[in-house]
Design a protein around this nucleic acid. Structure first.
Lengths: 198, 198, 198, 198
DNA sequence: TATGAATGAGGTTTCATTCAT
DNA sequence: AATGAATGAAACCTCATTCAT
């Protein structure tokens, strides 16, 4: 079955961006990886940014699907926690995907407004899903600090991912997850109670 | 008093890299900001990367000094907590400095080994300082998961900083700090107890 | 009724080249406008230049037909003058057609010999027609400067058309035509007498 | 004496643009002609258009200076006419300069607004100078059609220049000038009288 | 020390043209 | 007849770095 051009380019771009040590994700490099000429790229995409957008869309959709999946389930609370633990562990290990996301972050830092907007939108959705879970599973009430709490949780995961990408975190993922599990099981419940009581 | 060349260049580089929207930190831009010619830059530095290294050194030293300062103090526990809160709040607000650090992160992701090593070294030192504080202030014992815990704490702060840089975190810094304070005051003690009991 | 491929391409090319603001008349643009693929273009034409040649032929034939039409008519002198005035006014207003002609001019300036030859041939014919009219209507005799006079007349019209294309001529076409009419009616007769007397 | 970079580039650009048969005035070609690398060009000019603007400025300033020079002189009428004839003849023969101006015209046709504005401004000034001359030398009064008349005169010259550039005008410049002289000497006076009487 | 002109490799993008289907 | 994916050369431009002065 022939794979269509856009898909090939996206796969190649993802590969190139993720490749450790890859100097830069140039159009030339993407084209080479995709096995086409640079000109061919422009047959499918108007410009380089458009490739990035598609890639981001894909990448963000994945994350969102997972977040939604967990939040929407009519599972027992224990199952939800297990689900979160598993997905988080998987994410810590998805080097390529994480590398990609930080590539986007860098683009945004360089001033790419369009990318920033897309990212912000998705981030809002994620915090919303997390909040949903905290409410359903942990009994979080509607406090003034709900959003701040979810931001800290999301931030912690992102921060640890970055540590792994930069290779400055020597802990086994299993150890990190053990602490995380303890947090979810025993740490969060009383902490959320504190917030509710405020 | 004449400021020496290297200092001028470092200040200029910091400014240029941090400048919001500055698309690229070119040698030309740094030279211009420093009020010298591009050629002059190469009198003081062998190449552009060397500027980065010095800058990273400076930047990391700052952070380390703060961490050391807090850990070494023979202060009462309350004072230490206040110190941490204040420094953390300050850091969340130091846009330029944070932007700089993520610039380094990006360079490392692109495969700059030398930078990576320096970063790793410093990161080790930070986690050590944090652990020290957790031991002195919170009575953390020598558990197998000490390092994982400190990594989560450091990661959370880095992750939230990144959220602010990317402008995807709409919470006031004050709200974020309120949750953080609650964590330090009421959340951590029982959590550390759990770890000790394991 | 099916329109044959070449015609469709010519119409499309004319449209694209003439389109105000159209930055470039690419084969792709022509193909799109013609509702076919780029490949199809090359079924009908060996290369892009050949399209231009055909287009020029068409365009020049139009002008020539008009010139011939006026010259050949066994009309009264007044009718001929009216005819000239009307056709000239029409031409000043045909933005698309004029834009096309200056596109050809540009190609010639870039060194396209073939185009140059075709153009030259047609230009000769036009000056011949104009001369014919000057002889029949104004009684111009066979002077040494006949050709120079016709060149000035043709040149004036071309120059003014260019002014309009470049949007540097703010006069109403009606004002321009009023002066032109005065020239044809009252200015040329004595001037031609002068030439005859030389 | 060392020639400064901008001058060298301008001279080279002028040469390249003017060169008959030159396929296109690319930055590479200009750099080659100037004896520098393409990168060096960008040391002096932000982009290619800026070179064009400088070139146009120069070119237009020349024309304007000539127009001003003629108009401002407190010369006798005969001297002014001689001056006009001489300058016009010179211009018909300046192939390189004329080629340059039509290159600008083409850029404007492609939609370069900035260039268009500069051109329009200068064109206004020229028509003003011509009108001045017509008033001082030929006694033209303040009629409604003054501007239209000057546009025709300017247009005629531009049109004839284009004929020469395209090599479709086989007349000797001398013959063209003879007709032009006759126009200035004998043709214009009665024609302007007609306009005044309207 | 210092300048800034110059290089050259490499970036993104455009486009006429070819060719398997 | 027709498609449209693909090529490859060449366009403009950027930038770390070198070097004569």
């Amino acid at each position: 079955m022939k794979v269509d051009g856009k898909s090939r380019i996206l796969v190649a771009a993802r590969t190139v961006i993720s490749r450790h040590g890859s100097n830069r994700a140039t159009v030339r490099a993407i084209a080479e990886e995709a096995g086409m000429s640079t000109g061919a790229i422009y047959h499918y995409y108007k410009n380089k940014d458009d490739i990035l957008y598609d890639l981001l869309d894909e990448s963000l959709s994945d994350s969102t699907r997972i977040a939604k999946g967990i939040a929407k389930q009519e599972l027992g609370k224990d199952k939800v926690k297990k689900e979160i633990l598993q997905k988080t562990e998987e994410r810590l290990k998805k080097d390529a995907e994480n590398r990609l996301q930080y590539h986007f972050a860098h683009e945004i830092l360089l001033g790419n407004k369009e990318l920033q907007l897309k990212f912000k939108q998705k981030y809002k959705e994620w915090t919303f899903r997390i909040e949903e879970i905290l409410i359903n599973v942990y009994g979080l009430e509607d406090t003034r600090l709900n959003q701040a709490l979810t931001s800290w949780l999301l931030g912690a995961i992102d921060g640890v991912i970055l540590q792994y990408l930069l290779d400055v975190n020597d802990n086994d993922v299993e150890d990190m997850m053990e602490v995380f599990e303890l947090l979810l099981e025993k740490g969060l419940p009383p902490f959320i109670q504190l917030l509710n009581d405020k």
